[in-house]
Write a protein that binds this DNA or RNA. Sequence first.
DNA 1: TTGTACGCGTTATCAT
DNA 2: ATGATAACGCGTACAA
Lengths: 349, 349
Amino acid sequence: MAETTIKDIAKECGVGVSTVSRALNNHPDINPETREKIMKVIRETGFVPNNSARNLKRSDARSIALIVKGISNPFFSDMIRIMENYAQTQRYTTILRHVEPDEDEVNVALQLVKECRLRGIVFLGGNFTHDNKKLKLINAPFIFTTIGSIAGDAHKKIWYSNIAVDDRAESCKLVSYLIGLGHRNIALITEGLGEPSVGKLRYEGYRDALEQHGIPFDEKLVMEVDQDREPYSMKNGYNAAKRLLNGESKFTAIFCEADILAIGACRAVFDKGLKVPHDISVVGYDGIEMGNYYRPRLTTIKQPVEEMAEEGIELLFSVISGKSEHRNIIMPAELLLRESSSEANEARE
Amino acid sequence: MAETTIKDIAKECGVGVSTVSRALNNHPDINPETREKIMKVIRETGFVPNNSARNLKRSDARSIALIVKGISNPFFSDMIRIMENYAQTQRYTTILRHVEPDEDEVNVALQLVKECRLRGIVFLGGNFTHDNKKLKLINAPFIFTTIGSIAGDAHKKIWYSNIAVDDRAESCKLVSYLIGLGHRNIALITEGLGEPSVGKLRYEGYRDALEQHGIPFDEKLVMEVDQDREPYSMKNGYNAAKRLLNGESKFTAIFCEADILAIGACRAVFDKGLKVPHDISVVGYDGIEMGNYYRPRLTTIKQPVEEMAEEGIELLFSVISGKSEHRNIIMPAELLLRESSSEANEARE
DNA sequence: TTGTACGCGTTATCAT
DNA sequence: ATGATAACGCGTACAA
């Protein structure tokens, strides 16, 4: 029941193994005829080279990894698809690895790179700062994406790439828009402020906006989600909003750090017998497709997912092939004004 | 820049490579002291054995694959997580592979099994019948899940597993419920009837229900989604519903073969200035979390995702370890009566 | 252009 | 209990 190997093919064709290998890898110095003969047998047999043996031998193992923190966020699925497809066009194998919220994505990468001889890594989600010492140990080029950007870092000497929107600025933009609508008491549903996450950047953007408009910061209006398996979930948005609504602080708008949280928050508002946006405006962040189907359509910051994925994966591959250096790319995001926000009405008690 | 290998560790510890290997794999015949000494060095070095070399040599490669058709359906993310976690507890590596709608999942499996020496495969999504000849070529135990069940097959001699709900019966149950509410003109938004997919089973359940209640079948009320990249998407639900609404046939309810389609369909109804369920009832299938946050909450058939994932992966592993035979498991589904369905009002023209 | 032989890092078999 | 060594399947330098 042993799988057929390159030897079997060689024997079958009456040639040496190296000739088969050459046929397999489009090597130049091989007689087109023998090549065709061999490929025919390969097709008939359905032979597929053993990946382990290949990677073991090859100096360039032709595989990259996508390390995703937060699979259940639909935000990532498109990006994953685009990146996988691109890798395939480069004849690379993609290893897709999920990371639980309590796992350290850098440790996972460290392990994976050794296990699988990766040629490159994309981190999706997770924290935006990491232990540099550990990062240095990753023996392959890597890029971060959708984990936030820090504009000030752009000039620093960089040895890995980052591609993201300017979360702090975009977040500030969104909250400023709410303020412009007359909202003064704006609640925030946030991922949690302990970690250096995008959540924190968006939180800072929120504070920036308040400060710029001379609105005092009220920490009672900041609600962290449950330290759950998955911070960005509808359930967390729901629970956090419920706590806010049952609290004593009054507010006329909620800024949720992700659309998926906003959807949960809307549900909590409805369950309270209130209307969005009439009683409370609810805005999100990310621009997931669902936001356009939800009722009301979600006002949000739309991240350019497709473009980020494309630019990111192209960048990684040009770094791998030595064609380009690492870069720090800040993508533009778009403020989508839709139905879940409106002018502030009287703040509820 | 070469990675550290088992040899380096051996040299460092002043022992042979086989001793290191024994320490690494919890072999019985090794002195606990030397074992501890070696493990200490391994921890300090951060050494990780090369997976390719391992799989190459090992008879039991300790890896399984999850082959997923339709990543963007949030329905699958929970299942994937549960299965990955379970595999990890068995110290197995999980290879997650997405399949595009136009790819053949069996071909992918065939290739993967050879490339990676898989010990088992889970198919999520995709068609429910396949070329048996090809299936026989898959050199590893495999199970299908969420691709529909055919009750009549239960007695057949089986050499692979299937775990799913009885899509036809559940679908019939749901449509019968609508009929019970007084609906006579019930539209169907379906995946497409060319392929032997769950879509087809649900379509048959729809027809069963009509027939049982003596309602004539009207093919004008059956709307196939666009042959898109991804059949189950909100966009497809939206477009299909729009075509129905702009058509000449009248109806008071729409049965969508997936919740994600139903959400799109609701949006189309709203855009037309109509109300769900007052003017048109919209029901879905799957029981995704979003259905409970949407407004109105979706009436649907809830598949027991967690249980299916758990039972499925456990079954696969017990087949792998020879502890059990392949089985054909039909899971119970639940009819969730929520807000998107109500008694039929006058059919719109 | 083609074939032979070696080595990639690991595990398993056999001595010791 | 431990160490030397032969595989595993493939790519490639080198010889032919």
